[in-house]
């Protein structure tokens, strides 16, 4: 099982699509490691610089419909290669969400209000999150405060995370 804790990368925009996460021109790469330098390089967002802002981050907090568009699993791979194994948002595109769990990574859905709270209270500072899957809780911490938020994870998704992904699970069962 991967480790789900670290510094937050805030991406304050809805509908960030997989072309923005990893542009199609890198889909000719067969090795996942080749995705690493190109994560979010086409994302246009005020104040965001992919070359600077991704470094040392482990968790993305963002807005609705993250990962829409193409089915490319290169999007989770590009996150994984940069040490990001968790995305927290009000909602995800179906294929992206399934790809995350299939790879043993977390796509956590929180209510719009909760996401607003995280942006408002932690978005300006350096903050980090640690995820406790057993307790279904995330703990957000900055210099000034700590907040614990519950989240829902299905038994199936939890099993995928714990077995390391869908290939392992399917091979055991079907």
């Amino acid at each position: 099982m991967k480790e789900f804790k670290g510094k937050i990368l805030f991406l304050d925009r809805s509908d960030i699509n997989t072309d923005e996460i990893i542009p199609a021109k890198y889909l000719t790469e067969i090795e996942k490691t080749a995705m690493k330098p190109h994560l979010l390089e086409d994302l246009k967002l005020d104040g965001f610089d992919s070359g600077i802002d991704i470094k040392d981050k482990a968790i993305i907090v963002t807005r609705e419909n993250f990962g829409c568009g193409s089915s490319r699993e290169h999007a989770p791979w590009a996150l994984e290669e940069n040490g990001i194994a968790v995305v927290i948002a009000p909602s995800f595109a179906r294929i992206f969400r399934q790809n995350m769990y299939n790879c043993g990574m977390l796509a956590i859905e929180l209510s719009q209000d909760r996401i607003n709270t995280i942006f408002n209270e932690f978005g300006k500072a350096t903050a980090q999150i640690s995820v406790d899957i057993e307790a279904s809780e995330i703990v957000i911490q900055s210099k000034d405060q700590i907040k614990t938020i519950e989240f829902k994870i299905s038994e199936f998704d939890k099993t995928l995370i714990q077995t390391g992904g869908w290939v392992e699970y399917a091979d055991m069962h079907y």
């Binding site: 490319r72 699993e73 294929i95 399934q98 790809n99 299939n102 992904g165 869908w166 399917a170």
Partner: peptide, 11 residues
């Protein structure tokens, strides 16, 4: 689907 679902589909 993504590559992992495809992989399991193939297998």
């Amino acid at each position: 689907v993504g590559t992992t679902d495809l992989e399991v589909g193939i297998l």
